[in-house]
């Protein structure tokens, strides 16, 4: 790792104002993506602003038909939350399949969303569950948040403070994990709402996306269409055609498992 300075902050305002003062800072929460990236010297921030102890961005609450999760809430906390297991069991199950037990005790939902790894699990949940990403500046709809590979709508220094998920009638997340890394080769979050189902796919393409053709087919009561392989990821783990096939298979399983 290159050298850097480290500072702890205790409020959202302090985090944002410190960030603005510094040369090339990064926010640090669980650090389970950032620290490995820095070890590989793929990132060399001048300062790490540790936000993991800000009380306002930790915890889970409900409001009408929404579940709000603070951005520095760990995967473990989501997986074991009684509230989430009752209201959106598919989200708790998804959190419980991220990485391994030690990763889940440190990694956070805000970090996962801000990083927007093409194979991460949470982006699929956010997109399918009509999430609103609340930041230090504004509220961003999930439909606008995920822009491209490792790219989001966040501005420099803008801090995710919480994520509001809409409670679906039923939902399920099914992933086909890479046998070595356990990242999703393809992961599908299926969620049913009054107005229809939302199907969000991770792992298959450079960025999480909604499978609109499949959503429309379901609305019309038709068979799920074939997925076009063009534009999907193709690497040593799985070719684009295989991924296209997996999207349909994982979606079928998610529909069957939804509760």
């Amino acid at each position: 790792m290159y050298e850097f300075d480290y500072l702890k902050v205790s409020s959202i305002n302090e985090a944002v104002s410190k960030f603005k003062e510094l040369d090339d800072p990064r926010y640090l929460a669980g650090g389970h993506t950032l620290l490995p990236t820095m070890k590989q010297r793929l990132a060399s921030p001048s300062h790490l602003v540790d936000i993991s102890n800000i009380p306002d961005i930790i915890g889970i609450s409900t409001n009408n038909n929404e579940v709000s999760i603070g951005s520095a809430t760990t995967h473990h906390a989501v997986a074991t939350s009684e509230t989430i297991n009752n209201l959106i069991p598919a989200l708790a199950a998804l959190a419980n399949e991220i990485g391994d037990p030690q990763v889940r005790i440190r990694g956070t939902i805000g970090g996962s969303l801000a990083n927007n790894d093409p194979a991460a699990d949470y982006p699929a949940a956010a997109l399918a569950l009509k999430a609103t990403i609340v930041t230090s500046e504004r509220e961003i709809s999930c439909d606008d948040f995920f822009v491209d590979l490792f790219e989001t709508a966040l501005n420099e220094g803008e801090l995710i403070t919480s994520v509001k998920f809409t409670v679906p009638q039923k939902a399920s997340y099914v992933k086909f994990p890479n046998p070595a890394s356990r990242y999703a080769i393809v992961g599908v979050m299926y969620a049913e709402f009054e107005e229809g189902a939302r199907i969000a796919v991770t792992g298959a393409a450079p960025c999480v996306f909604r499978a609109h053709e499949m959503e429309e087919a379901l609305k019309r009561g038709e068979e799920l269409p074939e997925i076009i392989a063009e534009g999907l990821n193709s690497d040593i783990h799985a070719g684009a055609e295989y991924r296209a096939h997996l999207v349909k298979v994982m979606t079928k399983r998610a529909i069957e498992n939804a509760k």
């Binding site: 480290y6 702890k8 640090l28 650090g31 620290l35 070890k39 993991s52 990485g99 030690q102 005790i105």
Partner: peptide, 26 residues
């Protein structure tokens, strides 16, 4: 050294973590 193998696991406030993926400062 990449948060995968668990040879560095220790307990921090009674939680098992990978000590290669946490700063001493944290």
């Amino acid at each position: 050294d990449t948060s995968q193998c668990g040879a560095c696991n220790v307990h921090v406030d009674d939680k098992c973590v990978k000590s290669c993926t946490m700063l001493a400062a944290q």
